[in-house]
């Protein structure tokens, strides 16, 4: 087995407000670790106001990871060497996600905003993480020396309920983009529904009390199925659902050395 690997657990759970109003879970997440131990992961949050938000979210998350996997296989060197290269890589990934959603809207002869979704996407190797984000949510990392930081964070518009979407005009222009060098021990992606419990708002710094126990859990729980189940029941727990009624997605990735 070559080099480093990631252990990944992720879950998307329907929020109580969506249950009450009969909406499906509009969050989606997709991830893959390739043979070289490179992780690609996407989390998308379909807009509650968009009739097909969950369709947009699923398509965007899948198209982004598919495109990135294809690029990783076909380009040489496999991963870009500098920020510039990563920037093009991420832009290309977002464009692919966007055109997949546009294609779906076209197939159904519906306006694109009915598929409105946010998108968070990352690529992580043994000594780098590249992340991009359009709209809300965050990517949080714990470095191998124990520091916790937000790689991307919720953008600060004036109003809480205003955000940007993948397919809106300013979507690509307003994307947050970041490449972090150095070894990351843990990564987490959260959707909008977890922001108020996982981050210190309005700044968007990670709340260590939220992430540390989760990262510890990832180190201890080696059984994939068990980890998956425990994460899902945490996200569905009454204590969490008292604090947020939106759909929630949490994806955790821990580097196995």
């Amino acid at each position: 087995m070559p080099g480093d690997q990631w252990r990944v657990v992720g879950a998307s759970i329907r929020g109580t407000s969506h249950e009450r109003s009969g909406l499906p879970c509009q969050d989606a997440h997709v991830w893959n670790v390739d043979r070289d131990g490179v992780l690609v992961a996407a989390v998308a949050d379909g807009a509650g106001s968009a009739p097909f938000g969950e369709v947009g979210a699923n398509i965007a998350a899948k198209a982004a990871t598919d495109r990135a996997r294809w690029t990783l296989v076909n380009q040489s060197p496999k991963t870009p060497r500098d920020d510039q290269g990563w920037h093009s890589f991420m832009k290309d990934t977002l464009a692919a996600a966007r055109s997949a959603v546009e294609q779906e809207a076209k197939n159904r002869s519906l306006p694109i905003n009915e598929f409105a979704t946010t998108l968070i996407f990352l690529v992580a190797g043994p000594d780098f993480v590249a992340a991009v984000q359009i709209g809300d949510g965050a990517v949080v990392a714990k470095t191998s020396d124990g520091g916790i930081l937000s790689l991307t964070r919720p953008p600060r518009g004036e109003y809480l309920n205003e955000t940007t979407f993948l397919c809106s005009e300013e979507g690509l222009a307003n994307a947050q983009f970041l490449v972090a060098r150095g070894a990351m021990a843990h990564l987490a992606i959260i959707s909008d529904g977890l922001q108020m419990v996982a981050l210190r708002m309005p700044g968007g710094e990670p709340h260590p009390g939220f992430f540390n126990p989760l990262f510890e859990f990832m180190e201890q729980e080696r059984d994939q199925m068990a980890a998956q189940g425990r994460l899902s029941s945490f996200l569905a727990s009454p204590r969490l659902r008292e604090r947020t009624d939106d759909d929630v997605t949490l994806m955790l990735a821990t580097r196995v050395v």
């Binding site: 809480l160 108020m196 419990v197 996982a198 981050l199 210190r200 708002m201 709340h207 009390g209 939220f210 126990p213 989760l214 510890e216 859990f217 201890q220 729980e221 080696r222 068990a226 425990r230 994460l231 029941s233 945490f234 727990s237 204590r239 969490l240 604090r243």
Partner: peptide
């Protein structure tokens, strides 16, 4: 190996943000 499956919700602490208005 982990021992008895402890519930994550008992360990994870929530950020104390003021409620949005």
């Amino acid at each position: 190996m982990s021992t008895a499956p402890s519930e994550l919700e008992a360990f994870v602490e929530f950020a104390d943000n003021p409620e949005a208005r």
